[in-house]
């Protein structure tokens, strides 16, 4: 390997059409054209990455299944929201509706509480995303909680 040969990281970046760190894309291309050793390493990398299999795409029925399950959960949620203000008989009726909704062959037609702006006008879409660093903290909390359970503290 010559001193100006491309390192593994740059070969990987070039393979994916990304800008290498150690050289300009033009300089890297010039080097590859002139250096048989780097070309061989690049070809080997491409060969190995091309052999990595991809998972089979989901069957089309998955869309209907997911939509049905989400609608079911949304229906359950909106039913639960009303439970405290309902009387005993109404609770039984709501339970029946939920049961019926679960069995419904066309679950997307289940009555869903539409999303309203009433209590969330200031809500930014970003706020609903799990924050990765926050999740790291959550992991620590969860680890402590699990340890507490194991040790029976």
């Amino acid at each position: 390997m010559k001193p100006d040969c491309l390192n593994e990281r740059d070969l990987i970046l070039l393979h994916y059409g990304e800008c290498p760190d150690g050289a300009t894309p033009a300089a890297a291309a010039d080097h590859l054209a002139a250096c048989a050793a780097c070309r061989a390493r690049q070809e080997q990398l491409a060969l190995e990455l091309a052999r990595i299999p991809a998972a089979v795409d989901p069957e089309p029925a998955v869309a209907t299944r997911i939509a049905a399950r989400v609608n079911e959960r949304l229906g359950r949620r909106s039913a639960l929201r009303w439970l405290p203000v309902l009387g005993g008989a109404a609770v039984a009726a709501a339970a029946l509706i939920i049961t019926f909704a679960v069995r419904s062959p066309q679950p997307e037609l289940v009555q869903i509480q539409p999303p309203t702006t009433a209590n969330s006008t200031a809500m930014n879409l970003e706020e609903d995303l799990p924050d990765i660093d926050f999740l790291e903290d959550l992991d620590v909390i969860e680890a402590l909680e699990l340890l507490r359970q194991i040790e029976g503290v």
Binding site: L74, S120, L125, D128
Partner: peptide, 14 residues
Amino acid sequence: AQEAFLRLHRALPG
């Protein structure tokens, strides 16, 4: 995926 869609439903107003 279900969880992602439930979050989407919650987030739609914003």
